[in-house]
Amino acid sequence: MIRDITLGQYYPIGSPIHRLDPRTKLAGTLIFIIALFVAKGLWAYIIATIFLGAVIRVSKVPLSYMVRGLKSIVILLLFSVVFNIFFIRDGVVLVQIGFITITAGGLIQAAYMAVRLIYLIIGSTLMTLTTTPNDLTDGLEKSLGFMKKIHVPVHEIAMMMSIALRFIPILIEETDKIMKAQMARGADFESGNLIQKAKAMVPLLVPLFISAFRRASDLAMAMEARCYHGGDGRTKMKPLRYQKNDKIAYGILLFFLVLMILLRLVG
């Protein structure tokens, strides 16, 4: 059934990583990314690999799920590798054909760059795999709370995100219904070239938009009837609170970051 679709790519399984506060996971991802860019030298990469491997292991998410996330960046990956190989001239010259020069330093740099990008994607995929979209929204709302001071409507944005998450399956179902109703009356969504297909979508989008607006207006009334008046003075049923595990996680993360910085300074 279409209503059963999971949004995002949450992998539902209980693990210590899943149970961490979403803010910890957001901060963790950020620290991991910073550490990757600080990393220099073979040892730094080995430590990063061990760290990432350990986190994946604890999260109990199969590695294949993370590899799937890499598909989208294959082209980017190839580009950066090729550029690094051809344009960095450092160390022993290995190959020289005409204007193409490949050096040992270039190869090493290209390899590091590839590993860095792959780890970056795996690291952030891991966060979305272990955090539900709702938790993620909550975490973002709370950790970006300071931006309220510069008049960024953080609460409102978070509320919109979570409402969008709730209505996506409903709207998909509705699209399906409208499509079937129109196909029953002879509409053709399948054949023709791209432009014809796009044109066939217009009569689908118009009723869909009208219904979405009607739903939005109903929902706004229902929210006001239940005393919704913005984020001020609002309490939470499940307020985010750091647990013992979160403190441990922060400790490990900081240790990891410091180690990476030290390795850079030494190396």
Binding site: I163, D218, R226, Y228, G233, R234
Partner: peptide
Amino acid sequence: DNQIIANVVEEDVAFGPENLGV
């Protein structure tokens, strides 16, 4: 469909009291 706000039943029930600052 158009009056349920949250993605989990219990959180939707909590929506009103949350707005009241309970």
